[in-house]
Simulated assay, not measured.
Amino acid sequence: MKKLDAFCHIMPAPYYRRFFELDSSRHAANLRKRVSHIPCLYDMDVRFRQMDEFGEEYRQIINIAAPPVEDLGSLAVSREMSRIGNDAMAALVAEHPDRFAGFMACVPMDDPEAAVAELDYAVGQLGALGAQIYTHVHSEPMDKPEFEPFWARAAELGKLLQVHPCRSSEWNDYPGEDRSKFEIWWTFGWEYDLSAFMARIVFSGVLERHPELKLLIHHGGSMVPHFSGRVGPGWDQLGARTPESQKADVTGYELSKRPVEYFRMMYADTAMFGAAHALRCCVDFYGTEHVLFGSDSPYDPERGPGYIRATIKNLQEIGLTTEEQEAIFHGNTERLLGL
């Protein structure tokens, strides 16, 4: 069966070289160490040998690996790195169409006007299938007014936006502490990060204003499927838990539907890292038409093929029909990305 892996990370050689030339930001320093120990991010010979395990019917849709370009330095640096990444990914897709079905643009969201321009360049001149964005920009929420032109343009283009979490140990777990411990910021924090992004997009009216917007939420749509009762009947009572003095915190854009229905407008990938029961929950909540095969390669313990293998196995063992498997493995991705 054809398999289009809709959420895979990469650092093409030109981007990788420039990434290590930049003055080290606090966000980049630790990730430099990590990416240098994952060769398939930048060495295509290693990557292709790993992909061979999954046969000729397996191809990837690639995006630039974390950290966000916004965290690498000045506005000029984020614009520079976006352009290097997009040009390099486009070249890889052109050179290896049997390996890469396409790429998702890198956009400098710390400069929303430049992000729109880069999205237009990547889509219009390079053939990008959409873009990858993160859940916040320098700790600022993505429902702020300055991002509205980007949402409007993405909706107008009809291109998919991948949403990746973005949190570090600087985000403490308790108000009385300075840092997150035991990598809680990653294991649980990233999922809260994604879910908070989704909620802000819903209640600020972004999807009400732009129903054509296509958001692919990483990690199976995050916490939402697993807490659908709280998202559904719980948020139907929005405001019931808030004192009068804080009413401004629960009022905002007027929604025409139940909150949970906006969450179901989004899409989820299958990057659940081998947890079949959790993947089944995601499919049940979003429906097979809103789930795309995506592995999150190469961040598994094997540094490449592990999550791909586990995700394929999960999709084959959770009781999906052949037609449902085909939709998730490739059909939905082809439809949404115009492949």
Rank of each mutant, 00 (worst) to 15 (best):
S82N: 09
R59I: 03
H138F: 11
A117L: 10
A131Q: 13
G73F: 05
Y286K: 03
L75S: 07
L207Q: 07
L75T: 10
F329W: 15
R167C: 06
P141I: 03
D178S: 11
Q237N: 14
P149H: 13
A196S: 04
L320R: 03
D193W: 11
K2T: 13
A199E: 08
A268S: 14
V291L: 00
V107Q: 09
L157Y: 06
R264S: 05
A128D: 01
A310K: 15
R167F: 06
V116L: 08
R209C: 09
L279W: 09
P145I: 08
E323K: 08
V69Q: 01
H96Y: 15
Q60Y: 05
A117Y: 04
Y121H: 09
E191W: 01
E212I: 00
G73E: 00
T242D: 08
E212K: 15
Y286G: 02
K159P: 00
S195C: 15
L339H: 13
P149A: 07
H219Y: 13
K159G: 00
V77P: 01
H290P: 07
Q325D: 12
G221L: 00
P301T: 09
N63G: 14
F263I: 07
M1N: 11
E261F: 09
P112T: 10
A310E: 08
A122N: 07
A271E: 03
F19Q: 00
M272H: 10
E208M: 06
M1V: 12
F188E: 07
A196Y: 10
V231F: 15
G221E: 02
T333F: 12
T242P: 02
T321P: 10
R179V: 01
E324I: 10
A76I: 02
R303I: 01
I201F: 04
W171D: 12
E212W: 00
A268D: 11
D43Q: 13
E317Y: 00
A278L: 15
G234S: 12
R26L: 07
A278Q: 12
E118F: 05
E156D: 14
V206L: 06
D300R: 04
Q316F: 08
N30P: 13
G294H: 10
S169Y: 10
P211F: 11
Y42A: 07
R264H: 09
L72F: 11
F19H: 00
M198L: 13
F100L: 03
A248M: 08
L72Q: 08
R230Y: 12
D71A: 15
A128R: 01
K214I: 02
F150E: 00
V231A: 09
N30L: 12
V116H: 07
E334F: 00
A271V: 08
G338L: 02
G338Y: 09
C106Q: 11
E323I: 08
S204M: 03
Y286H: 05
D178M: 09
F182E: 10
